[in-house]
Every structure is written in C-alpha cells, then in structure tokens.
Design a protein around this nucleic acid. Structure first.
Lengths: 206, 206
DNA sequence: AGATTGGATATACATTATGTATATCTAATT
DNA sequence: AATTAGATATACATAATGTATATCCAATCT
C-alpha cells in the first residue's frame, strides 16, 4: 500500500500563516526583550499562541527560527533599493546611497541588534549572517572598483573596501548610535568616513 | 563566645594561587574553544583541577569569572603604555601610538574576542566591559582636543572622537583581521582612517 | 596540644533551555 | 470513510547556572 500523499492548499496556507505568526512573535520578543539571553522558544511559542513543538515543526531549531526572522527583517528592510544604488551613474553618489540604505536597515528594527548578539553564541548562525553580509561586501567592492578604476593599487583598493565594509557594519552603526546620534546623524558621519577612505585611495600619503 | 577570626598568610596565598590557576584555565579554555557557547564553569573547573564550587567561592558567578579574566588580560595586555601615548608631545603621533597599542591588545590574546562575545548574553558583563572601554574613549577625546584645539566645532570634534572610538574598537579590528590582515596591516589601515577622520575635522567639506 | 577557622570538597537539589520521541487530535483531501 | 498534514500533549534526555548543607583538612589562635 503506497502512501497516498497530497498537497493541500488550505493546510499549507494555514501552516504558512502560523509560520508568519511565530516569526512575528519572535521578532517582537527580540525587540522588546532586553537581551538575547531572555529569548527562549518557550516565550516565543507562548507569544505566538502555539506550542513549542510547533516552532520545532516549522523551523527545526532555535537557529532555524533566528535565520527565518533575519530573512524576514531583510525582506522588509529596504535592501531591495541596493540594486538602484549599485547602478547609479555616479558611483560616489551610489556609495552614499548605500550607506543611507544600511543605516536605515540597521535602525529600522531593533531586533537586528539582538540577532547580531545571537551570532556570539551560535557559530553556525553567525556563519549564516556573515554569508548574507557578503552581499554588502560585494556591493562595496563593485562601487570602489568603479570609483578607483586603475588609478590605485589592488592593495589600496582592498583596504578601502574592507574599511568601508567595517564602517557600514552593524557594530559601527551601534557604536555611533550609542554615542547619542539619530539615524541620519550616524549616516552623515559614516558617509564622511567613507569619503575619507576613498580620498586615501588616490593619495595614500600616510 | 565571640568568633575569633584571623587572617592567614599561608591560606590567602594558597587561595590566591588557586584563583590564578582558575583564571589561567578560564582564559585558556576561551582561547582554545571555538565559541563562548562551549565555555562552562564545569570545563574551566576541570581544566584548573578544582571543583566547580571552588569557582563559585572565588568569583561568585560566571560573570565574576569573566570579569576577572578580562582584568587579567588587560593587566598583561600592554595598556599601561597608554599613559606614554597620551602625553606624547605630538598628539597625532600619540594617536598613532594609541592605535598601535590597541591593535596589540586586541590581537595578543584571542580570549578577548570570546569575552566580547560574552557581552551578548550577559548584559551586566557587557556594561562592565563598556565601562572599561570608556577609558579608551577619554583617551581619544583628550588627544583629539589637543589636536583640534579650537579650530573646529564641538560637534565636529565629537564626531571625530566617536568615529575614532569605533575605529579602535574590537569589532573593527576583528572585521579587518577577518579580511586576511596581520596585526600590523590592520594597524596601518586603522591609523590611516584615523588620520582621515582628523582631516575631516578641519575641512568638513562633505 | 587542643579548639577553631578558612578554603576546598562532596553531594544533592532547583531551575531553565534545547532538543528528541511517541501518541493523539482535528480538519482538509482522496 | 479512510487517510494525511499540521498541531498538540506528554514525557524524557541532556546540559548549564546557581544554591544549600555537611564534611574534610591544614593553618592559626589560645
């Protein structure tokens, strides 16, 4: 007797809905909690009105849930605008725009900060986030290449790319924010630092 | 019958020695472990050849142990050279020296990276580390003030201080290191970025 | 020398998390 | 009406932090 499996529109729709509800509850818990330490699947399940086992059914593990939350935030975080920034005629303007987009991304949902905290305790989750960040690095590299053309050594270009990558990272954003700046003020400071990094590119005086 | 308490040189010396041994075992465990997730008091106690309860006797809690390890690393990390850097005649040279000192500090013992990871799960430990970092911020502020004198607005100076503070932080060092740089190469990149931040100070063109 | 004390140990227990296993329930499909 | 997917209920294994209590031993005090 072969198992007669089937796909059910209603079932999978309902499952997708509970999935959404769990993700929503998880990001809310991350947002409202003081620390990632308090983030337990028990709390999330209760907040979502489901059982802890349902969370495991949907996401497999704590890590799976965190990745799903990260992807959900990324989906609604305005990162789709990056394509525009990358193809801007003036690559310097494109970089400014990129900084703006990422400042918006890091500040939009405070759960991203907690997700970065989760990287500390879960190496595989950290790796997953790092892979997603590589997109940013490639974006920076593309713009720097367009800006620098061949008027700078490969090493100088790599320095600029890695420095700008660090400047547009979440830790830098968090550090500048903690010093009492609004999103726009942080954006301005980071943009200026990126300009300086590009200036050093053509004039590596020191 | 009043309790006749006493102080014992031999006893406290032995206690101090076990304390040292536990701290050593803890930093070794942090250094060798892949992630802070694996760092348990059980492991440390075994590595030190004592009982887990002894760790609690000496440090009170996991957090207490982590703070003790951090302070121990700071003591042997070369930060005492900061006083020299601060009082260097040329404040720009002093800042270069400061960057050098911190690159040395962040790279000397890989346990510091794990300790920064621990900040994510223990808010009070994070606060303790942040307080210790404030010394770095004050150092930067002092040097920037000497460099800028009154040729720049307070806001521009604050921007420079906060940016240099972020540039000399552990996350920035780790990011640039992960891109495949030696300690000295990271140092060079960070120094150049700091120079640029100072240049923006007197010429806030963008 | 004998009583006492500080530090380490032994053992036990409470609590909280993650993750797995098994059986059951219910509503959607065949 | 039988079956199936997704959710639940219950139970269990494991590991970690932290607390409580009693004991042991060597260093001190009288």
């Amino acid at each position: 007797m072969p198992p007669r499996s089937y796909v059910s529109p209603a079932r999978s729709a309902a499952a997708a809905e509970t999935r959404e509800r769990v993700i929503e509850a998880a990001s809310r818990t991350l947002r409202e909690g003081e620390s990632i330490a308090r983030f337990s699947l028990d709390t999330v399940a209760k907040a979502a009105g489901v059982t802890r086992l349902t969370v495991y059914n949907q996401f497999g593990s704590r890590r799976g849930l965190l990745e799903a939350v990260f992807d959900e935030i990324a989906r609604h975080g305005g990162l789709h605008q990056l394509a525009d920034a990358m193809t801007t005629a003036d690559p310097r303007a494109g970089l400014d725009r990129m900084v703006e987009i990422f400042c918006g991304f890091w500040s939009r949902d405070s759960a991203v900060g907690r997700l970065h905290d989760a990287m500390a305790t879960d190496p595989e989750f950290a790796e997953a986030v790092r892979e997603r960040n590589e997109r940013r690095r490639r974006g920076v590299a593309g713009l720097v290449d367009r800006i620098a053309a061949r008027q700078a050594s490969p090493q100088a270009r790599k320095d600029a790319v890695d420095l700008i990558f660090a400047l547009t990272s979440y830790p830098t954003f968090a550090s500048l924010s903690a010093a009492g700046r609004s999103r726009d003020e942080v954006c301005r400071v980071v943009q200026a630092a990126c300009h300086a990094a590009l200036a050093n590119l053509s004039d590596p005086s020191s």
